[in-house]
Deep mutational scan, measured.
Amino acid sequence: NQASVVANQLIPINVALTLVMMRSEVVTPVGIPAEDIPRLVSMQVNRAVPLGTTLMPDMVKGYA
């Protein structure tokens, strides 16, 4: 099963993503693939993302 990107903490809106904010985990439904974590660094989410939430492509500005 493919690992997805999961919030490692509350990720506020309009804050640049850092490695420490994200972890990889096998979850259902599948979200952004874990291998895209380096690409996500410095991008921003378009809504607050609670701890443990799977990041979906539509949550990250400029990802999709």
Rank of each mutant, 00 (worst) to 15 (best):
N1R: 04
N1M: 15
Q2V: 10
Q2M: 13
A3S: 13
A3W: 10
S4M: 02
S4W: 02
S4C: 06
S4T: 04
S4R: 02
S4K: 01
V5C: 06
V6D: 01
V6N: 02
V6M: 04
V6H: 01
A7Q: 01
A7M: 04
A7R: 02
A7W: 03
A7Y: 02
N8K: 08
N8Q: 11
Q9S: 11
I11R: 02
I11K: 01
I11V: 07
I11C: 03
I11N: 00
P12L: 05
P12W: 04
P12K: 09
P12Y: 04
I13D: 12
I13W: 10
I13G: 09
I13V: 10
I13A: 10
I13H: 15
I13M: 13
N14K: 06
N14M: 07
N14G: 13
N14R: 07
V15M: 15
V15R: 13
V15L: 06
V15K: 12
V15D: 07
A16L: 09
A16F: 09
A16V: 12
A16D: 09
L17W: 02
L17M: 12
T18F: 03
T18M: 07
T18Q: 11
T18C: 04
T18K: 07
T18H: 05
L19A: 08
L19T: 07
L19V: 09
L19E: 07
V20Q: 12
V20T: 14
V20G: 12
V20M: 15
V20K: 12
V20W: 15
V20F: 15
M21E: 00
M21C: 04
M21G: 00
M22Q: 00
M22K: 00
M22F: 11
M22L: 14
R23N: 05
R23F: 03
R23Q: 04
S24R: 11
E25L: 06
V26Q: 11
V26N: 15
V26C: 08
V27K: 06
T28F: 10
T28C: 14
T28Y: 12
T28A: 10
P29F: 03
P29E: 07
P29K: 05
V30L: 14
V30W: 12
G31L: 02
G31D: 01
G31Q: 02
I32E: 00
I32N: 00
P33Q: 06
P33G: 05
P33S: 08
P33L: 07
A34H: 12
A34M: 07
A34K: 06
E35I: 10
E35T: 14
D36T: 08
D36H: 15
D36I: 09
D36M: 11
P38W: 10
P38F: 11
P38K: 11
P38C: 10
P38D: 08
R39W: 07
R39V: 11
R39G: 09
R39P: 01
R39L: 11
L40S: 00
L40F: 01
L40A: 00
L40T: 00
V41Y: 05
V41S: 02
V41W: 03
V41E: 05
S42Q: 12
M43R: 08
M43F: 12
M43A: 12
M43K: 09
M43G: 04
Q44P: 10
Q44F: 14
Q44C: 12
Q44R: 15
Q44H: 14
V45G: 00
N46K: 11
N46S: 11
N46V: 13
R47C: 07
R47Q: 12
R47V: 12
R47N: 08
V49S: 02
V49K: 02
P50S: 08
L51N: 13
G52Q: 04
G52W: 04
T53K: 07
T53N: 08
T53V: 14
T54P: 06
L55R: 01
L55Y: 01
L55A: 02
L55E: 01
L55N: 01
L55V: 08
L55I: 14
L55W: 02
L55D: 01
M56N: 05
M56L: 11
P57L: 04
P57S: 07
P57D: 05
P57Y: 10
P57R: 08
P57E: 07
D58G: 09
D58M: 12
D58N: 11
M59D: 14
M59E: 01
M59W: 11
V60H: 02
V60T: 01
V60N: 02
K61D: 09
K61M: 13
G62H: 10
G62F: 12
G62T: 05
Y63E: 04
Y63H: 04
A64S: 14
A64F: 06
A64W: 05
A64L: 12
A64P: 09
